[in-house]
Structures are given as C-alpha cells and as structure tokens.
Amino acid sequence: YMKHPLQNRWGLWFYKNDKSKMWQDNLRLITKFDTVEDFWALYNNIQPPSKLSSGCDYSMFKDGIEPMWEDRSNKCGGRWLITLAKQHRRTELDHFWLETLLCLIGEGFGSFSRDICGSVINIRAKGDKIAIWTSNAENCETVTYIGKKYKESLGLPQKLVIGYQAHADTATKSNSITKNKFVV
C-alpha cells in the first residue's frame, strides 16, 4: 500500500497570541506533509479551530512560504476573505476550514492552483476569519476564478458576496476597513 502523494508539500503553522513575545516568536511551524495519509494523520490529531482560544491562528502554506505578508511569495498577493459571525463558530467554522484545506491539498483550482500560497484561519472574539492567500493580486483572471471556485466549494449562496484584498492595501490601511480589489 503506497501513500498518495500530493502535488505540493505543505506546512501547518500555529500562532498563539502571547504579548510577552515578539510576533514572529509566537508563530510556529508544527509540521510538514506531502501525502493524503499524512495530511489526515495530522488533521485528526490537532484541535479543531472552534476549540482554539481567541487570538490563535492556524495557517497552511506551501513548503517554503511563511504565513506572513513579508514573504517573497506573498508580497504582491492578497487574500479571499471569509468572515464569520460569532454564532457560526459552532456550526460552520470547522467545516469551512476543512473544505478550504481540501481545496488546497487537492489542487482544487486546477492550473490556477499555481497561484495559491496558503490559507489562514484567525480565531477572534469579534469574529473568526478564514482566508485563501494567492501570490499575485494583479492576476485578475486567476484571482477571480479562485474566488468563484472557493465560494462554490464552501457552498456559500450566490448572493453572498466575498471580497479579495491585496496585502499591500491591508498593510497600509489607516482604519480597520480594507477595500476589496475584487468581489465574487
């Protein structure tokens, strides 16, 4: 019996908000994997996002990409962002996160998967967030395709609009609202 190799090797990261440490010291690579079987071995052994405490993140990125704007692969990119109201933590959060991971490891965006960098889930008291990060916010066709396919994969209703934000805009925003570069 052979394990099923993935197209990419992925790293799973965990962030825990500890104000006594520097931001980057709070971010830890848990492990890397590159087969379907190893993905599940990992997934089945970690806390689901809904059980994490507020201020924590999981990130899953292609090997060699760190889950931060500054990484060379992310610098010119952006994210499709899903925000969840508090009451959806119990019902939707873990489900959305798993669907997101399956889209990534299964290369669910076809040839456009090349632009995928990774995904981040933020557990926050004011509302949880899940995002798919891509490498180039100017690749209109690619970004739009990924957004449409992602929305479909999560089973979101057509009329619900999700937005794509360039990291450059998020990083330089002066208030808490970042403008959407694309919407689907």
């Binding site: 394990k3 099923h4 993935l6 197209q7 993905f39 071995a41 299964g106 998967s113």
Partner: peptide, 20 residues
Amino acid sequence: GKRQYDRDFLLGFQFMPACV
C-alpha cells in the same frame, strides 16, 4: 501530470490507517 484530488476522494482517506 498534476496530482489533483477531489474532496470526496480525499475524505475517503480520513479514517484509514496510514500503513507506510
């Protein structure tokens, strides 16, 4: 070729023991 797996295929392995 590209190793693409759809969700149902991936979900089929969730509770399988990894032997290798």
